[in-house]
């Protein structure tokens, strides 16, 4: 790519170019391998027997014990329950975020009302406030509301997202005004226009915002650690974290449990990779 011109290169230059290419590929492959290796190691060790995994010397299992996954599913705390909890909490949070953010983003993008711009600016400002800053009052609020150990404590505080409002508002604004004027001529209300025109056109932004919300919910630890007490209410990360201390020696089961917990995310990621990466690029560019 560098040397696109067709002129013949002196041999020293060619050697240098080939060495450069070799180095380039080596560095990239080294990066990719070190990124993937811990995953491969995790999966391989999750398939070993107990003594073998605890000794951890060979790379490949002597016998491939796929039954470890069944055992992990049945024996790592209340694993099916953790898993179902996380799915439920994740989906509910995503729905909440999509509904509240779409409405707010639309209003910020298309409607005129007093204080709109100031409000939006505050929203942009709060986008980067670490949630840890709000931890103590929020916890006390949950306690006072008697929400400890309930699903609403795990869902409702996360159902509004400044980031999603921001992302969607920027996207909605790029939809031409003409479309709206035409819809109004046809007698459409804001809601009609939003549902029939804006939402279908904004699929990438909506999917990005849904994915980020789900990822954040699925991988969260600190908040659920605080507001859940009983094992029945634990989402998956808290379940796994407590299994570490409960049975640190059952290496292969722990790794099988982690593998199961990563599967939904990897699946979602592979299926929707295009939007995911596009969305991440947007987050980064917007800050």
């Amino acid at each position: 790519m560098t040397f696109t011109r067709g002129r013949a290169l002196p041999s020293a230059d060619r050697l240098r170019r080939d060495l450069g290419h070799l180095l380039l590929h080596l560095v990239l492959i080294a990066g990719a391998v070190s990124a993937l290796f811990p995953f491969v190691w995790m999966v391989l060790n999750s398939l070993k027997g107990y003594t073998e995994a605890a000794a951890g010397l060979d790379i490949l299992p002597k016998r491939w014990l796929f039954s470890n996954y069944v055992t992990a599913w049945n024996q790592v705390g209340l694993f099916p329950r953790y898993f179902a909890n996380s799915i439920f909490i994740g989906v509910a949070t995503v729905l909440g975020v999509l509904v509240t953010s779409t409405l707010a983003a639309y209003a910020f993008a298309r409607m005129k009302f007093p204080g709109r711009d100031a409000l939006f600016l505050i929203m942009v400002a709060t986008m980067i406030v670490p949630f840890e800053v709000t931890l103590v009052p929020n916890f006390i609020l949950m306690r006072d509301l008697n929400w400890i150990d309930t699903y609403q404590a795990l869902i409702i505080p996360w159902s509004g997202s400044a980031f999603s409002v921001f992302l969607l508002r920027q996207f909605f604004r790029s939809i031409p005004q003409d479309l709206y004027d035409a819809a109004v001529l046809d007698g459409a209300s804001h809601l009609r226009f939003l549902i029939d025109i804006v939402v279908p056109l904004s699929k990438p932004a909506l999917i990005t915002s849904a994915l980020f919300t789900f990822l954040g919910s699925w991988n969260s630890l600190m908040w659920p650690l605080l507001v859940t007490n009983s094992p029945q209410m634990r989402p998956i990360q808290v379940g796994i974290a407590s299994f570490i201390t409960d049975a640190g020696t059952q290496v292969q089961l722990l790794l099988a449990a982690v593998t199961i917990s990563v599967v939904p995310i990897v699946l979602v990621y592979l299926l929707l990779q295009r939007w995911f990466i596009e969305g991440i690029a947007t987050v980064g560019l917007r800050g």
Partner: peptide, 27 residues
């Protein structure tokens, strides 16, 4: 019209105000 707008931004603002802005001040 501006009342409608407030209804639209309301839910998101309420959650953000309740679980983000208010707790920050209380902290």
């Amino acid at each position: 019209r501006s009342l409608t707008s407030w209804l639209w931004v309301g839910p998101a603002l309420l959650i953000l105000a309740g679980y983000l802005v208010y707790p920050v001040i209380v902290t």
